[in-house]
Simulated assay, not measured.
Amino acid sequence: MFKIEMSAIDHIFDYDDYRRFLQDYFDEQKKLRAVFSHRFFAAKAGFSSSSYCLNVIRGRFNLTPKSIEKMTKALKLDNRQTKYFAALVEYNQAKRVEERESAWDEITQIRSQNEFNHISHDQKEYFSKWYYPILRELVVHPDFDGDMMHLARAIDPAISTEEARAAVKNLEKWNLIQKTPEGKFQSTSLMLDARNVSPMDLREIRREYVQQAIGAVESKKPSERFATFTTLAMSESSYDYAVKILEEARKKIIAKASDDPIMDKVYEMMIVAFPMSKKFEKENEK
């Protein structure tokens, strides 16, 4: 019964039309609670008109930023669901093409974030070797035919065939990849989230990737890699702004990559900003 009550909200990220989502939600709630109605929800949300929600669902009214806030609170959506609902409203109600495209970019970003799989304690060994994450991306490529030697040599720098074979077995054991009935490999989730992995467990692989980055800057053609170095003097507020912009760019790139139908290569992307000086203090502040 609980799953029936929450099904529309649980699947909100599958909706492209917020009016359809609202219709499904209202239909479910009416089946669960005799007291539930458009009037009941309107009163709960704080709308002055008892028929407001019905008119929204039927396309007679559009939602405003204020009504979105009221509705998401009444629906008890969490932060990510609230952002997604607001993006859906913008997408469905946009009058200009660029507004609609911008809203769709936001939708795809949130969807990609929702498809992250959190690394469990048993899976943290995934980060013990630098080539595990790369192999996880390569082994699910539709052109991979099971040739472990070819797989090992596809990595740059190459690893041994034995290392590739052992890694694939581990990825299966950790349930990070699985075999299809056709004998191909597929990912068990779109992307992995390492927030639950301790910094100590990530330290070695981070060092490996930094070393790989140094080697790439020195050996790869400019057309094959991107590297930029900028020294800036700025306030803490400007730094916070820079972090926000960089994080937004990272999310957009992730969303674009997750929707890319063709995967040619595996890239490692690092965005780093760190202090290279201490904060100046006035003499009278010491």
Rank of each mutant, 00 (worst) to 15 (best):
R19S: 08
N62Y: 02
E137P: 12
I271R: 07
S277Y: 03
Q123T: 05
I134C: 10
E208L: 08
E204V: 14
Y52T: 01
Q81T: 04
K179D: 02
A273S: 14
D260I: 10
T64D: 04
I177Y: 04
N55Y: 11
I119Y: 08
E224H: 07
S128W: 04
T72L: 06
M276Q: 00
M191V: 12
S187T: 06
D264I: 11
T82L: 07
I155D: 04
S238M: 14
M269D: 05
S237C: 03
S189D: 10
V56Y: 03
Q178P: 01
N79K: 15
K31N: 07
N284D: 09
L63W: 04
D10N: 14
D24H: 00
R39V: 05
D145E: 10
F36I: 00
I205T: 15
A8R: 03
L135R: 04
Q93L: 04
N117W: 14
V35M: 09
T108I: 13
S50K: 08
R250C: 11
A45P: 03
S219K: 15
S223Y: 10
A242C: 01
D14C: 10
I155G: 03
D201Q: 12
E162I: 14
E172Q: 10
K44Q: 13
M200L: 09
A255W: 07
D16P: 00
G146E: 00
E182L: 05
